[in-house]
Design a protein around this nucleic acid. Structure first.
Lengths: 191, 191, 191, 191
DNA sequence: CATGAATGAGCTTTCATTCAT
DNA sequence: GATGAATGAAAGCTCATTCAT
């Protein structure tokens, strides 16, 4: 008698997530072309064929990983923060703090940031991304309040997220990277 | 009408350089695995076989490109600057200025920076690179002089060059990127 | 409530026969290479693994199906008929009648004929098959009696069975095929 | 200096035709699933990769072969014959003669007939094929003239072409098959 | 020298077979 | 016994490399 339907579905879901998670690190580090399915399978600890039970092709797996890399979490937090009746300085400090925490605690976060940025890089207009736009709002508030350096807000937002990417990327390659401090991020925008 | 030996050799050298230059952009953008010899040849405007008249293999071509990406120029300038009897602030301003100028004038410079950083990322200890060490010296001088923010000098050097990489990378993907201003770089280190 | 040994054995035998019957249609239609175990299992309505409880391999299943496709029934009938003291015309009419009846009544018969012929096709010497030899005997009798057209008896036997195959094959693909009439078969040999 | 454009194109065309021709025999004999690209390449005497320079996939190669198998030649001849002011008997004799000649002289003709019939078998309504319709016209003429046996004309057309297929199929497997005589075909329709 | 068609090693993908449940 | 997810051997396919022209 086979497992129950629910158990079965759960196992399938778990495996799918496992493949996505463990593959994303490889793809983020080495890119599509330098990632071999055989390596991936070995790394995940499953047979090559198993990957194809969950994804139609290497490309589909890669695409799903890239599509998952959206950073909706940070975007939502930015949106909430944006509307709070506090100074931009406080908002920026909160988001910097949040990012530093997640980068040190959650291995996947760095992968997500890395993939997201690589996706953005290949887009025509990076600056049209909501993450940038929302960050720019807070930056403009800060500029009015005098706590944020002058200059194009989107450009500064890009500088900020670029440095987050930079740190995340380094983390993928170095296990001994010293933790990112929120002050480093804050200073990028400080007046 | 046979050309002279010198002309002939010149043509060979020119072709070699042409292949190196035009390939490096591809490799910097897409990495080794995602760069196909057929695409490369089409992009350069030569036959696939021609590449193999000048390079033994794709790997050798890639290696040579990576080895060229050493940024000895900047290193040398840093070394010279380092010893000059001027303030660190001035030194940093000079190097920032130099970098911004080269990034806007010389397409290849961005490629070089990108590849160099990618090489560094894969090394065990990024911070042992001479470029970082030399930059750190100037930073320490600035910290003594009070013009540079406190903190680990290598960490700050890394921040500085990381942002140069970031800008160079973006330039490889966007043709309409606004020029980098030296102040953006300077601010990373300012006290 | 455990079933008795006999019941148990019967169930096993039934399943075995079910797999054989339902697989044979697939193999006859699409051949070995174009028949997937997964399709087979879905078509039979069992799990893939179940097939392997009854057959060691796809090849063994296929072989057993081919070996079953021997048409010993018709051969035996031909042998009996052959010795009866009646005209060849009568004998041929009887066998044609028999074939038409079985083709319309017994779905499996068409599958059997199809597979048998495909086996024969791949043999070096089709004409050495007993079915052909026995048919040729009756044909020769008919030629002496003047009721069968002149010509090489084995060639005519082949023509006769070839047309039976043709009709059987069509039946595997078309559900609306009009029934084969014995006269069509008889005419192939008639003087 | 490379070959001229024309030579080059000619070589490409020749290779394409060579692959199509030599593959069609394999596909006609063994079907899609039992034909391996590696076997095909070995049989043609080229590298496996070469096939992919001319065809996107095994499936595309197979499809093109099946689409080429149209027997437009015979159809055209039938159409011309159909309108000639001669007896159906003469027409049938001419077409039978033509078929026998091509089957013995042109190896490819048997392959074409085999593939064409296999394509027709998998269609919903075989009888709607023009080849059958045109043949049926002549058969009806013959029935009026009394030279062709009574019965559904399409059914008889199918019998006729079925026997051509049968002979062609045998020819793919046996090198020593005795030539088909036009009388064998004519007799299928004779009154 | 330059070319691009041809090659085959090595990748991606499929599918017969196994096995934990 | 029955299942279908997991496996890996073998098939399809790609692309770095070679070579005849």
């Amino acid at each position: 008698m086979p497992k129950t339907k629910e158990q079965c579905q759960k196992m399938r879901d778990d495996m799918r997530v496992k493949i996505l998670k463990m593959s994303s690190l490889y793809f983020a580090r080495y890119g599509f072309g330098d990632t071999k399915i055989s390596d991936l399978a070995k790394h995940i600890g499953i047979g090559q064929g198993t990957i194809y039970l969950y994804f139609k092709s290497k490309e589909e797996l890669f695409d799903e990983i890239r599509n998952n890399a959206d950073n909706k979490d940070d975007l939502m937090k930015l949106k909430v923060l944006s509307k709070l009746p506090v100074s931009a300085k406080t908002k920026i400090d909160k988001i910097s703090n949040e990012i530093c925490k997640k980068l040190s605690e959650d291995e996947e976060y760095a992968v997500k940031i890395t993939l997201l940025t690589q996706v953005l890089l290949e887009k025509e207009d990076m600056y049209s991304d909501d993450l940038y736009k929302e960050m720019a709002k807070i930056i403009r508030q800060g500029q009015k309040e005098g706590s944020v350096v002058k200059g194009d807000a989107l450009y500064l937002a890009d500088l900020y997220w670029g440095n987050v990417y930079l740190y995340a990327l380094k983390g993928l390659f170095s296990a001994t990277l010293k933790p990112l401090k929120k002050d480093t991020l804050n200073r990028l925008l400080e007046a």
